[in-house]
Amino acid sequence: MTGLDALSGGFATPALDSARAFRAAMEALARPGTIREVAGAAPPGPLSPAAGVLILTLCDPSTPLHLAGGWDVPAVRDWVAFHAGAPLVAAERAAFAVGDWAALRPLGRFAQGTPDYPDRSATLIVEVPRLAADGARLTGPGIRGETWLSLPAPVEPLVANAARFPLGVDLFLTHGHRLAALPRSTRIG
């Protein structure tokens, strides 16, 4: 990929595309386990279109971003720098992080919030090989009764994250053009 490729793949109409994308992300986070489709971004691999949409919608120069493992490649760095301008940082300083589940663990490296300010915690964008409404049983706010979502294995770090509520990180799971969310308030199992 040449440097010029980084200039394409952003939102065509940023105000409208990000409004629609945020609404989908908000509905997903408010209703854990539901899967939404988003559109508008065409980022370079291995970044998925859904993860690209989330970065364009939520990240900017005020939100340090951590690219984990195989996602920390020049093509992704250039694309993020041009379209979002988020400073790239280590996991410990990140407000957002993107990568696969293996590269993002352990979760304890990320900001967990403080008892006074639980909102000051990282949001992780986990690229998953499969996203479907089956697998782990989820309960908690936003869920009527119970629901199911395919969570990345191993699931133990997510169970531990939920047990830290109101502290902990919040996760978006992305695959292709689709996303789901797992806030810290969701109980697993």
């Binding site: 990000s18 945020f22 919608t57 990240c59 005020s62 639980p118 909102d119 509520f165």
Partner: peptide
Amino acid sequence: NFAYLDEDTKRMIRRAILKALAVP
């Protein structure tokens, strides 16, 4: 701009809304 606010401001508010939903 769509819905009056600039995009930087909307992103800041949107991030706050997501954290608010995560910690009801």
